[in-house]
């Protein structure tokens, strides 16, 4: 079992009368890559900023775990932090900035210089190290941000929406870099982009409206919440679409033709010409559906049996 590193306990934050974060608890274990996932306004950034020490919580504690002891405060030397849109001193060069960051973290000058060179090489900025930061692209700035966050070898790397503001190329660069970094250090990052979380992280914490909706190992969650679905693709003709609406309506009102169907299918949703049936048992439901489709002469162009994705789960959890 992995060693706990950071413990967040009953964390809450209110801005005036608005509660941004309402009492969340989680534990980050050493060496894990954890995604803090949630829609915009869920309280991700607030949580991240409290952990980074930029914001004071209204209640609760954040502390590094050292043996049995949970520390409070004084986390800043252990954390490397990168905000959503980092802002540097544009008149400095990339190398100067990382050296500066290193010296602020207490490295002696010569150490800071060698460490900065090493990191810039690492994030692929050594060609641009002597250029002014003002001339950097968004992706380069984000990579510089990673370099400055890593300069003091933090135990925990805290990233706020590391790729949200980037174009596809910059996104790719940063994701690949994170893929490497997560092997060396513990990473906590927030995102509202599910594929990024799936690609990178081991654990997810899904938060919604300031509360934890779901958390755990991503593979575990995927298998635990995986549910069979049947997807129908209809031709866009009037009778077929009408049938779909009518079916959904009957399902909602509980007056389905056969009482059997009601138990098999527990959710129906239509988006354009595709209809999704969440079912409990695939074979029986398929049989029922095919029977009805044939009887109603519905024009089906495709029928697919599959499982809910993490995205479905995410949508379900955050729309509660």
């Amino acid at each position: 079992m992995s060693v706990p590193l950071l413990e967040v306990n009953g964390l809450s934050k209110t801005f005036g009368s608005v509660q941004a974060v309402g009492g969340i608890d989680f534990l980050i274990c050493e060496g894990r890559c954890v995604a803090l996932l949630g829609p915009n306004g869920a309280g991700k950034t607030t949580t991240i900023r409290i952990i980074a020490g930029l914001l004071k919580q209204s209640a609760g504690t954040v502390g590094f775990v050292d043996g049995d002891h949970v520390g409070t405060g004084g986390n800043r030397a252990m954390i490397g932090y990168l905000p959503q849109a980092p802002s540097f001193y544009n008149w400095m060069t990339g190398l100067e900035y990382v050296v500066y960051a290193g010296r602020l973290c207490g490295l002696p000058r010569s150490h800071a210089v060698s460490r900065a060179k090493e990191l810039l090489e690492r994030v692929g900025l050594n060609a641009a190290a002597k250029r002014r930061i003002g001339s950097y692209s968004g992706g380069m700035k984000q990579r510089l941000g990673l370099a400055q966050a890593l300069v003091h070898r933090p135990k925990l790397l805290v990233l706020d929406e590391p790729v949200s503001a980037l174009d596809p190329i910059g996104r790719r660069e940063v994701l690949e870099l994170l893929q490497e970094l997560k092997r060396e250090t513990t990473v906590l990052f927030s995102t509202h982009v599910l594929p990024d979380a799936e690609e990178l992280c081991d654990d997810v914490i899904i938060i919604n409206k300031g509360a934890i909706a779901l958390q755990g190992n991503i593979a575990e969650i995927r298998s635990r919440y995986r549910q069979p679905v049947i997807e129908l693709e209809l031709e866009r003709d009037e009778p077929s679409l009408k049938w779909a609406d009518a079916f959904a309506e009957r399902h909602r009102s509980g007056t389905n033709v056969s009482s059997q169907t009601a138990g098999l299918i527990y959710d129906v949703s239509r988006q354009g010409a595709s209809v999704r049936f969440s079912v409990t048992e695939v074979d029986a439901a398929r049989e029922q559906l095919l029977g009805e489709l044939a009887a109603e002469k519905v024009r089906v162009s495709r029928l697919q049996v599959g499982y809910t994705s993490l995205e479905d789960l995410f949508m379900k959890v955050v729309s509660l």
């Binding site: 980074a52 030397a77 980092p86 802002s87 540097f88 602020l104 400055q148």
Partner: peptide, 10 residues
């Protein structure tokens, strides 16, 4: 936001 990046350091 440049200050935040500095003040988050120790």
């Amino acid at each position: 936001g440049a200050a935040a990046l500095i003040l988050v350091k120790p």
